[in-house]
Design a protein around this nucleic acid. Structure first.
Length: 311
DNA sequence: GTGGCCCTGTGA
DNA sequence: TCACAGGGCCAC
């Protein structure tokens, strides 16, 4: 559920709470949550959070390792084959003393900083204990960053920068929609024969779009979700890309959309759900023509659209 | 291309 | 009790 605007909001609200702080210890409550990098957990202790940022729907935390720790040797294929692929969008330095944590929140992932000593809750999957960066190793803890995830679809990967570049999902990610001209996005859409909704959801075509913003941008552009991307004119695809950008920007301004579970790292809900035209509004009147909105399954996702306004 | 899978909580 | 929510991956 957290898509680009929601993860962006989480990154912005989490960054001031953890940047510059030291990771005193790591508690992996739910082993399956750690998808990669188990062997790196010991060296994570003592690392200092350098940056918190978003790429696609991933929440990224870059940390600098404490001086007295040496990185375990990387396996031999941990090279840099895919290096440079996303270099422009990836502010991750290739330094030996840095690690990156990549979190995918999927539908129900959340972050929250709790007071020192707070016990894991029912859905807590991973805990980072935080302390001031300057303090000695045994200084009192300041707080605990919880990664909670009811459905356990979310995950965390701990990686060296080179390993990040070699992670196939990362290496294949398409451009950030808000950093890419609409015309270029349109040309990328046009290169696919599949239905346009599936193309929008394909993270290799454009990164960060999920079900909500796919449906909303298709409605605003007047394009049917099942229309074959390659059959849609370039001006209409450009209008779709612009609509997507406008909606993403507006949603970020309103701190994302809160359906059920989503909260930012302060526990606050977003407000963009109040601006939905179609998502979650099956059978309700189309805001443009008043006809009942249709529900269908498109690209394996629940889809709502107006059969009259979207062609 | 589609459908199953992973998972749990909610609503009908 | 069961359909449904769904991102990414995998088999078909």
């Amino acid at each position: 559920m957290p898509e680009l605007p929601e993860v962006e909001t989480i990154a912005r609200t989490l960054a001031p709470q953890i940047t510059g702080r030291r990771i005193a210890s790591v508690e992996l409550v739910h082993p399956k949550t750690l998808q990669a990098g188990k062997e790196l957990l010991p060296v994570l202790q003592g690392a200092v959070v350098q940056r918190v940022f978003r790429r696609a729907k991933l929440l990224m935390v870059a940390v600098a390792l404490a001086g007295e720790y040496a990185l375990p040797p990387a396996d031999k294929r941990g090279g840099s084959a895919a290096k440079g692929r996303n270099a422009a969008a990836v502010p991750v330095a290739e330094t030996a003393g840095e690690l990156v944590l990549a979190f995918h929140l999927k539908m129900t992932g959340r972050f929250f900083v709790y007071p020192e000593g707070t016990a894991p809750q029912k859905h807590t999957r991973l805990i980072l204990d935080l302390a001031p960066a300057e303090s000695a190793q045994d200084s009192p803890l300041e707080g605990r960053l919880f990664f909670d995830d009811m459905r356990t679809f979310g995950y965390c990967r701990v990686m060296r920068p080179g390993e990040l570049m070699d992670w196939p999902f990362w290496a294949a990610l398409g451009p950030e929609p808000l950093l890419t001209p609409a015309g270029e996005l349109a040309r990328r859409f046009a290169a696919h024969r599949a239905g346009i909704k599936g193309v929008l959801l394909d993270q290799r075509v454009v990164a960060g779009v999920g079900n909500i913003y796919a449906d909303e941008s298709l409605f605003r552009a007047g394009i049917a979700p099942t229309a074959k991307a390659a059959d849609i004119s370039l001006p209409r695809l450009t209008a779709l890309a612009s609509a997507l950008q406008d909606i993403l920007r507006q949603s970020i301004e309103e701190c994302g959309s809160s359906i059920r579970d989503y909260r930012d790292a302060h526990g606050n809900a977003g407000a963009f759900q109040n601006n939905f035209s179609v998502y979650g509004k099956k059978d309700q009147p189309c805001p443009t023509c008043g006809a009942p909105l249709k529900g269908a399954r498109v690209a394996g996702r629940g889809t709502v659209f107006c059969a009259h306004c979207q062609k």
